[in-house]
């Protein structure tokens, strides 16, 4: 089957006094209805992938490689066709719900906005669809909430509105950029529930970007671990949590609360100045001599991809 989203050798660099290679050759694909989670420390380039797919990168960014969505090369589309895709077939949920909603419009109006923009068939009143969408994200009295303004609601409610807005058109690919960052556990659970139960759930593929493995574990089908601008491990979620192969994945799992907060020593290298050889070697407990000199390739072992010399 042809994958829904196919990213191949995606390279992004930011130009400046010193150009910074944020992504150095990232490749992965998402099938229809699948959830892929991109995991990694902040500053490893995971949000850049989301922005590159949506073509929302700042103007100093240089993009190479290819991003194919249903066979269309997104990087070569003109702005008009791109904005037709955005919101309609591709949707994104940003990190901070209270900033992503416009405070001067009511919830109902903001939810109807994508319908008005993207579906111009002569339906003057999109409210039925909005009501249905609100019901699906768990509001028992949607007609009541349609008249609300974002500032009247809690952050969790706003996050739910936001997910409803992004999914109201039933996009084929939904990108969630750090939806759980800075939230307390109850709200993380709420977000999790919404991501499972939004209107298009089941049909919609989800690209989930997060640093929180515990959160990702409950949602993802596939996991891609990123480190310093490249993917170091890509595997089915079940396999990954059972037996992580890359030393960095091991370290990440070790620092989870249930595993006793065992930290990975050191800190992630700056993208402007990555170490030679394997980028993880300064922090790796199993490092060998060749790790300092050679850059490992992403090896395919039984459907799992690992970037490490030590893996069979």
């Amino acid at each position: 089957m042809k994958p829904l989203l196919e990213i191949e050798k995606l390279r992004v660099s930011f130009e400046g006094e010193r150009p910074v290679n944020v992504l150095s050759g990232v490749s992965f694909s998402i099938q229809k209805g699948e959830t892929l989670a991109l995991v990694g420390e902040s500053g490893c380039g995971k949000s850049v992938i989301a922005h590159a797919v949506m073509r929302l990168l700042p103007s100093e960014a240089r993009v190479k490689g290819s991003v194919r969505f249903k066979g269309t090369e997104l990087l070569e589309l003109d702005e008009k066709r791109m904005s037709a895709l955005r919101g309609n077939e591709l949707a994104i949920i940003f990190q901070n719900p209270s900033h992503a909603l416009n405070p001067v419009y009511s919830i109902g109006r903001q939810l109807a906005e994508p319908l008005r923009v993207h579906q111009k068939q002569g339906k003057p009143d999109p409210s039925q669809k909005v009501l249905k969408a609100l019901k699906q994200v768990g509001f028992s009295r949607p007609e009541h909430y349609m008249k609300y303004y974002p500032s009247w609601c809690s952050g969790g409610m706003n996050q739910r509105f936001l997910i409803a807005t992004s999914t109201i058109l039933g996009p084929e690919l939904l990108i969630a950029d750090e939806p759980s960052k800075g939230l307390d556990p109850d709200r993380i659970k709420e977000v999790e529930r919404e991501l499972r139960a939004h209107p298009g759930a089941g049909k919609t593929a989800l690209l989930l970007i997060s640093h929180d493995l515990g959160f990702v574990r409950r949602l993802a089908d596939k996991i891609a671990v990123m480190y310093s601008g490249e993917i170091v491990e890509l595997a089915e979620a079940a396999d990954f949590f059972e037996q992580p192969l890359h030393p960095y994945s091991l370290g990440l799992l070790g620092s989870l609360p249930e595993n006793g907060f065992v930290p990975i020593p050191g800190s992630a290298p700056a993208l402007s100045d990555p170490p030679s050889g394997c980028r993880f070697h300064p922090r790796c407990p199993y490092g060998e001599k060749r790790c300092l000199q050679e850059h490992p390739r992403l090896k395919d072992t039984k459907g799992r991809f690992v970037r490490c010399f030590l893996c069979p």
Binding site: E41, S42, G182, H211, D212, L213, G214, G251, L252, G254, S255, L256, F261, V262, P263, I264, P265, S267
Partner: peptide, 14 residues
């Protein structure tokens, strides 16, 4: 640590 990544959080706690 609530604004930090999971792996960094472990470091700071230690």
């Amino acid at each position: 640590t609530s604004a930090l990544d999971v792996s960094v959080q472990a470091q700071v706690l230690h």
